[in-house]
Amino acid sequence: MVEGKKSINFLKAMLYLLPALVLMAIFTFYPLIDTFIISFKEQYDNVTGAYSSIGFENYQRIFSAGNQFVLCLCNTMVIVFASVPVSILLSLLIAVALNSIKPLQRFFQTVFFLPYVTNTIAIGMVFSIVFESHQGLANTIITSLGGSNVNWLGGNIQGVTLGNNLFNPDNALFTPQWFTSMIVLMVYIIWNSLPFKILILLSALQSIDKQYYQAAQIDGTSKFRIFSRITVPLLSPQIFYLLITSFIGAFKEYTSVVAIFGEGAQSVGHRHNMATVVWYIYDKIGSSDATEMGLAAAGAVVLFAIIMFFTAINGYVGKKRVHY
């Protein structure tokens, strides 16, 4: 520790922190506040900087019926609540299985880590070809098992849509086409998120004291009981950490959607039916109508609020359930 006079130390520290503080001020703190302000500026024009008044109009507009944002929010929620539990459960099973084997453990470990060091866009394009409706690998496997071709990504075939759905003004959500496209997206997101989780859980498993297991073995405890009473509680800090980070990550899902469905995020016509909240934000920033920047800001604030809300819930539950 650098000892000495407090004021001199403060100056010294500021000198070392200067680059970090300046960059954070310009690219983190100022934008954070400015986004809030922009979201309340009505008819904000980002070219001239002019706006008509301060109010909630942007929020009203994004939540009004027929706005793309509601659809994006639905998609994001589906992604979050389907992909996070599945991937955590799967990675837990894989980590436990990996931990219980001796030969080939390192080989499997490397294989399971491989998706981490890939390019999201490149592999997304691979997935869109694996799930291609005519000659894709997925359909080949399905047809060879006796099924019929599935129109995963919309492709060239006209989208099959089921009558009216109350949820979606433009009839893009919860249709058969939406479901099949969502399955592909889910598979990709899970494929992509497994390596990180497996690695974290495995390294935590390997650091668990063997004595717990030996004690359980002496008592003749069943394998399932060992898993649920020793392994999971001892892993709970890591599971909890993964839960928080993957919740946040799933709420921000964007690149994987663009990678599979292109920048329009659509698998049917021109409906943007696979769009997520972050997609909406970027779409509005890039919009030719300069006044839509306010909508993007409002969308970002809503996303921020949702993430904070879920992180708070996680924190609350974590306090009760996690054993440190």
């Binding site: 690219f27 983190t28 100022y30 934008p31 954070l32 400015d34 986004t35 922009i38 946040i248 709420f251 921000k252 972050v278 934000i281 970027y282 920033i285 920047m293 993007a296 800001a297 970002a300 604030v301 996303l303 921020f304 993430i307 904070m308 992180t311």
Partner: peptide, 11 residues
């Protein structure tokens, strides 16, 4: 904890 999307518009 703050999503990058909060910063990207002003940036």
């Amino acid at each position: 904890m703050i999503p990058g999307e909060m910063m990207i518009i002003p940036n």
